[in-house]
Amino acid sequence: MTDLVRARFPVVMGVLNVTPDSFSDGGRYADLRAAVGHGVRLRAEGADLIDVGGESTRPGADRVDAETETARVLPVIRELAAAGIPVSIDTSRARVAEAALAGGADVVNDVSGGLADPDMARVVRDAGCPWVLMHWRGHSRQMRDLAHYTDVVADVRAELGRRVDAALAAGVAAEKIIIDPGLGFAKTAAHNWELSARLPELLDLGFPLLFGASRKSYLGSLLAGPDGSPRPTSGREAATIATSLLAVAAGAWGVRVHDVRGTVDALAVWRATGSPRLVPGAPAVDRAAPAAAGPAGRAGAAEEGER
């Protein structure tokens, strides 16, 4: 898996939520056969990793206990790993991560960046596996109240830097660390757009960056209908692909998406045209424009974590 962390090609992480209440696909893959079948399909469509999660982080979601989370993800991880499919475990709990790694998972994707469970660093260090450190300020019930920044990019960069420093101090190898700006987690729509526009400043930390905008509500707000109703999750795929492609062109290591085939197709076009990169310092469009889309005032509301 070290080779995947160091991959020069964009890594596509396919989302597989085995929860009853995730914002986009909750309940669709709660059954073991359905979950494994979907993971196999995502892999066939081109996913490099299948990201299995057993706890929703949608706004207001109640936490489940570690036993329930483990019971949801472990059978799925075991079957996918047995089929030779690379798997990441989407959890903020060390106990769940440890069980998932023992069951065949290759990567820990931690939305809390190690803040929710101080024992996570030990688990990752001992396993020697890659660790995605996402920017995070609090659980689902708290995050909306925590979306306050002086400069969202500078603040997220500094806070991610502290999580990296803590991981390194705990003995996690630098080459195993991946960062994630945490779009939607204690962020408003305007914050999400600003982070997307200034990804190179986060890449200056010197670590691979995972970008996850897939189907999130700030895209639904951008694409709101004439009556101000946000575009449903099923109609956000084109926008997801666009944000993912722009992130890769800005230097992102990988993207986390629900629609793997569409993303892989778009990346094939990008590579066929010479893998063009966004040029730092080039004239930019008005970044306030996307935030103004949708119902009045919506852009200023805190967005959800949406997993």
Rank of each mutant, 00 (worst) to 15 (best):
R125I: 07
M1G: 03
E79Y: 09
A249Y: 00
D21C: 06
I179D: 02
R198F: 06
G46M: 04
A238L: 10
L42I: 09
V76H: 03
R63Q: 14
R307N: 13
R261I: 13
T2A: 15
M13D: 05
G60W: 08
P118N: 14
D3K: 07
V87R: 01
M120L: 09
F207C: 07
V5E: 06
L222H: 07
A71I: 06
L222A: 09
H258A: 14
R72Y: 03
G235H: 10
A94N: 09
V172D: 12
R261W: 11
D145N: 15
A268V: 09
A282N: 13
G113T: 06
A97C: 01
D126H: 03
L80S: 08
T19S: 09
K176P: 05
P283K: 10
L278R: 06
A81H: 05
T233P: 02
L133M: 10
E201A: 13
T68I: 07
P181F: 14
A238D: 14
E79P: 08
E237R: 11
D106A: 03
V164F: 08
A82R: 06
A83I: 04
D165H: 15
D119W: 03
A302E: 05
A83E: 13
T70M: 15
T263N: 02
Y149K: 12
A293N: 08
N192A: 08
M1Q: 11
G128R: 11
M134A: 09
G235S: 05
R141L: 11
G27L: 10
R72S: 01
G37C: 11
R277N: 11
R277S: 13
S217A: 14
G60C: 05
A289D: 12
T233C: 10
A288W: 14
E306I: 06
A238H: 11
I178G: 09
R72E: 05
A190H: 13
R277F: 13
D151Y: 12
G220A: 13
G212F: 00
P232E: 11
D265N: 08
A71Q: 12
A35T: 11
A99T: 10
A268Y: 13
A99V: 02
D259E: 15
H191L: 01
A266Q: 11
R157C: 00
D51F: 00
D106E: 04
S140M: 09
V285N: 15
D259P: 03
L74C: 04
G161H: 06
L42H: 03
G225N: 11
S22C: 11
H258I: 04
G262W: 08
V11W: 00
L278C: 07
D3F: 01
G104V: 01
V40I: 12
G39P: 02
R8G: 05
L205F: 12
N17P: 07
L246V: 15
A189N: 09
R122M: 05
Y218K: 11
T70Q: 14
E67W: 12
A186R: 05
A282R: 09
V76C: 04
